[in-house]
Simulated scan of single mutants.
Amino acid sequence: MKFNLNSIQKKWNKDNPYDFSDLKAVFINCTLKKSPSLSHTEGLMAMSQTIMEANGVKTKIIRAVDHEIAYGVYPDMTEHGWEKDDWPSIQDKVMEANILVIGTPIWLGEKSSIATKVIERLYGFSGNLNKAGQYAYYGKAGGCLVTGNEDGIKHCSMNILYSLQHLGYTIPPQADAGWIGEAGPGPSYLDENSGGLENDFTTRNTTFMTWNLMHLARLLKDGIPAFGNIRSEWDKSDHDHPNPEYR
């Protein structure tokens, strides 16, 4: 899905002095609708994706519900009783990417059940280590986009961004954006006369989030320094307690 950018978005793309051409981004759309149903969440993600691609970032949107993703917190749940699990191939794409954006609709004030499952599966890989001996997601930037027609953007964003940083992702400034219409049943982001596409607040915040993710991923390309965060060094230390009286 391509997004028609406004004049300032196009100007920033044209005047961009930074090279992002070696970066990759994965967007995981956690809509409850299978393809080819229209996803308003994907409509908002398309704005961010279009900006990234205009600046040389290689992107991919994955609609999680289109895949058979098993429940669980292990990297491959076929090793734990499930007959099929598409998650390992998605995990490979996540690990190849410098940027991860999770998109979700709001249901009952919360992120979708699919978003919860995706984060649980990401968590299942977080104990793995990178080549420097740090946790696997170190050196990657994370953000989120939220849509709906009921309150909850900030609540969902807090949960998703906390989860990503806890797993090892680095979160840039203003790493979330979203759109909601009037409270209660009503038009969604891409619906005619919803006001979503024309909403300056949503457009600005999505644009800022996208540029902040690209800038941070550029800074993190060489990785977070491997000092003071090496799991193997911690494990082989004797864990002496400097204050034995407080044991």
Rank of each mutant, 00 (worst) to 15 (best):
37 S>M: 14
37 S>Q: 15
37 S>W: 13
37 S>N: 12
37 S>E: 15
38 L>F: 04
38 L>Y: 13
38 L>S: 03
38 L>M: 13
38 L>H: 12
38 L>D: 09
39 S>N: 00
39 S>D: 03
39 S>G: 06
40 H>K: 00
40 H>P: 06
40 H>E: 02
41 T>L: 02
41 T>W: 00
41 T>N: 09
41 T>V: 09
42 E>H: 11
42 E>N: 13
42 E>F: 08
42 E>G: 15
42 E>Q: 15
42 E>S: 15
43 G>C: 07
43 G>D: 08
43 G>M: 04
43 G>A: 13
43 G>I: 09
43 G>T: 10
44 L>R: 02
44 L>E: 00
44 L>N: 00
44 L>Y: 00
45 M>I: 13
45 M>N: 02
45 M>L: 14
45 M>V: 04
45 M>W: 09
45 M>F: 10
45 M>H: 03
46 A>P: 06
46 A>H: 00
46 A>N: 07
47 M>T: 05
47 M>F: 07
47 M>N: 06
47 M>S: 10
47 M>G: 11
47 M>D: 05
48 S>Q: 02
48 S>E: 04
48 S>D: 00
48 S>I: 09
48 S>R: 04
48 S>F: 02
48 S>Y: 04
49 Q>R: 14
49 Q>S: 11
49 Q>P: 08
49 Q>L: 14
49 Q>I: 14
49 Q>G: 12
50 T>D: 11
51 I>D: 08
51 I>Q: 08
51 I>K: 10
53 E>D: 07
53 E>F: 12
54 A>C: 10
54 A>E: 14
55 N>I: 10
55 N>P: 08
55 N>A: 13
55 N>S: 13
56 G>M: 03
56 G>L: 07
56 G>K: 02
56 G>Q: 08
56 G>E: 11
56 G>P: 14
57 V>P: 14
57 V>R: 04
58 K>Q: 15
58 K>N: 10
58 K>F: 07
59 T>A: 02
59 T>R: 01
60 K>C: 04
60 K>S: 07
60 K>L: 13
60 K>G: 03
60 K>Q: 14
60 K>I: 10
60 K>W: 03
61 I>L: 03
61 I>P: 10
61 I>G: 02
61 I>D: 02
62 I>W: 15
62 I>V: 14
62 I>L: 14
62 I>Q: 15
63 R>D: 01
63 R>A: 01
63 R>G: 03
63 R>C: 00
64 A>C: 12
64 A>K: 06
64 A>Q: 10
64 A>M: 12
64 A>R: 06
64 A>P: 08
65 V>Q: 01
65 V>I: 15
65 V>T: 12
66 D>L: 01
66 D>I: 12
66 D>W: 00
66 D>R: 03
66 D>P: 15
67 H>L: 09
67 H>V: 08
67 H>E: 05
67 H>G: 05
67 H>R: 15
68 E>K: 14
68 E>V: 12
69 I>Q: 02
69 I>P: 10
70 A>T: 09
70 A>V: 05
70 A>D: 11
70 A>G: 08
70 A>S: 14
70 A>I: 09
70 A>Q: 05
71 Y>E: 11
71 Y>W: 06
71 Y>G: 07
71 Y>F: 07
71 Y>D: 05
72 G>V: 01
72 G>M: 01
72 G>A: 01
72 G>F: 04
72 G>D: 00
72 G>N: 00
73 V>H: 03
73 V>M: 08
73 V>I: 07
73 V>N: 04
74 Y>M: 07
74 Y>E: 12
74 Y>T: 08
